[in-house]
Write a protein that binds this DNA or RNA. Structure first.
Lengths: 351, 351
DNA sequence: TTTAGCACTCAACGGCAAAGAGTGCTAACA
DNA sequence: TGTTAGCACTCTTTGCCGTTGAGTGCTAAA
């Protein structure tokens, strides 16, 4: 939900007509005219009256015309108003809910496969693209194991409080024995267990600057290894998976315009930008909708994002959702995303 | 290289003209007529003569006409003949080779990032899609570490001879102590170090059937854990990454035909089919070319694959390559793929 | 054997008129 | 005063049609 202030007040009739335009356009992808609305919806108003109202709505910035003699199309502001104030909440049908639950992947501590499967599931059910971001930003450290691989290469496996496991291959400045590594691991576990990764990184940076670290060999080595372990982790802090991008080709708005389509597919290949967008969603509670130009990235201004965070216990693990054209079936997709996020949370929490 | 037998012998002139048609079509994506060839190539032949030869080539199945009054287009058989017998080997320019070497990712035992980066590199340089398959089929086991996570969950980390590291979370039937796990790991290391994963799986299956295993607790437990460890590994035996799929949208043959484009993008999303295709390439030494209908999968009949295996020492690690339209700049792409595969092999071998 | 000439085919292009959807404005109506 | 019918106007879409041009196959001459 965005701030609702700053809108000119719309009377009942204007709201109804705006709703009719948005819904009709979402269904047909054709600009909608006054005649169409007058026929298809039972407002008991003539096209002429509707025209007047639509002209008002256009002036207020909710609608626009592709060209003079065409019908109207919602603007981003129009979609926003629709999402925030007009659409009723839609529940998933029982069959659909059952279908999702049935297709739900099993979880055995390996997030990667779950993420991939969920994004596929979301894309199939929405017929748009599915997207999942997994973050370690608020992950809590539980334990690390250090395994000598060969030479100065060491495998650091760290287990998170949520039961998730990550591993990183790090290269030390000087070779150490497995015994030394064991001692270091013990130290790190004792010192940092139960703390968020974010904080640990900070602590290590602080300690390394402290004087006494210079004199204590174990401490010095521990900080070196710990630094590498947790710093390296940062690189994989966020993992993002997209599924079903081919679905967007079916959308008529891109069919005719291959230029836009190319732009969009390229945007989807550049994960870093998507991460930036979804990062914002991590802070939003509940189902979050981003419409077209509400993101700062021009190549996705023709898209909307519907997302929701998912958790393990009270830790935020990531965010999942659907990317589709602005002309998206919002109520349905929002219900789908909400339901799926709940299921994932359940899976991770009790798993 | 395919079998060269079974071709009607082509005389010098026919070969030249076939080559001209293929090259011209690769360049322009337009069906090529007799007039064009007569002008652009210095054969000293009139269009009429060329027409006769082209008619012969069409009868033999090397060329075809989209419609009566259009020029000719190579068939898959035509491309095949071109690739096998007509194109000269092309070397990468020094600048390009340098560019690749410079953009080459560093390697520190983590394959995942290398694979992703290589596929991106291949796609950027070829302007088609880059593809990399990593396989464990011929991987050799070096060492395993078993780490208790919580309850019956155990993290199995296995190091391969090539220095690569994989991990799998497995769930035991009964909880074990870290000490027991350590003993089991020792046993597995002693027993199986230096053997291919493939073979190990087989051995374990055999042993589990043996009678004496029933009486020896350590052995029984070891087989149970080993079975899970190596069996689980099979699931991730093959990993495939595609980069730059958006590039294919630029190809004129797909621009006009969104139906084909959709089909192709969907095919790219179904990794299992791509794996099947690339699996075949694993057995081919040298640069391998697959043209259109030479794969059994209809959705990629408009594409060609150019691939080459890469190695660590004498072990095959995977296969990399480029996927593009059949109308592909074969000599250039083949040189690129060859060079890149060599670099990767070098990286993995000395790394 | 090669080539010039010719009749033929067919996609592509441009122009044009008709159709159709939609609008804004005005005047009449309840 | 709000609503609506009517109307003139705009502009895209569609279909039609003739023209153009690239390309072919065939035949007959060099």
């Amino acid at each position: 939900m965005r701030d609702t202030a700053g809108y000119e007040p719309l009377d009942e009739r204007a709201r109804n007509i705006l709703m009719a335009v948005v819904q009709s356009f979402i269904q047909t992808a054709e600009p909608v005219g006054s005649r169409t609305i007058s026929k298809r919806f039972e407002f008991g108003l003539s096209p002429a009256t509707i025209r007047n109202v639509m002209a008002d709505l256009e002036e207020m910035g909710f609608l626009e015309q592709p060209h003079t003699s065409a019908g109207r199309v919602p603007t981003d502001k129009g979609y926003r108003y629709y999402v925030d104030h007009l659409q009723g909440p839609e529940a998933l049908s029982a069959e659909e809910a059952a279908l999702i639950a049935q297709r739900f992947p099993p979880y055995r501590g390996e997030m990667d496969e779950v993420i991939a499967e969920i994004s596929r599931l979301l894309s199939e059910l929405s017929r748009y693209a599915g997207i999942v971001l997994r973050t370690l930003a608020s992950a809590v450290f539980s334990r690390v194991e250090l395994v000598k691989v060969r030479g100065p290469q060491v495998l650091a496996i760290f287990v998170l409080e949520s039961g998730m496991v990550h591993h990183k291959l790090i290269t030390l400045e000087e070779e150490m024995t497995q015994d030394e590594l064991q001692r270091i691991a013990n130290y790190l576990n004792q010192e940092f267990a139960g703390q968020p990764l974010r904080l640990i990184r900070q602590r290590i940076a602080e300690r390394m600057a402290e004087e006494k670290v210079q004199y204590d060999q174990l401490l010095r080595q521990a900080m070196q290894v710990g630094g590498k372990t947790f710093e390296e982790a940062a690189k994989k802090d966020e993992e993002i998976v997209l599924g079903g991008t081919a679905n967007i080709i079916d959308q008529p708005e891109f069919q005719s315009n291959t230029e836009r389509m190319k732009e969009l597919l390229r945007a989807f290949e550049d994960k870093s930008r998507l991460i930036r967008i979804l990062d914002k969603c991590l802070e939003e509670p509940g189902v979050n909708v981003i419409i077209g130009s509400e993101t700062p990235f021009k190549d996705v201004h023709e898209c909307s994002f519907v997302t929701r965070t998912f958790h393990s216990g009270d830790r935020t693990i990531g965010v999942l959702g659907v990317v589709g054209p602005k002309r998206m079936a919002y109520p349905r997709v929002m219900a789908l995303v909400d339901y799926t996020a709940n299921l994932v949370t359940q899976l991770l929490t009790q798993g």
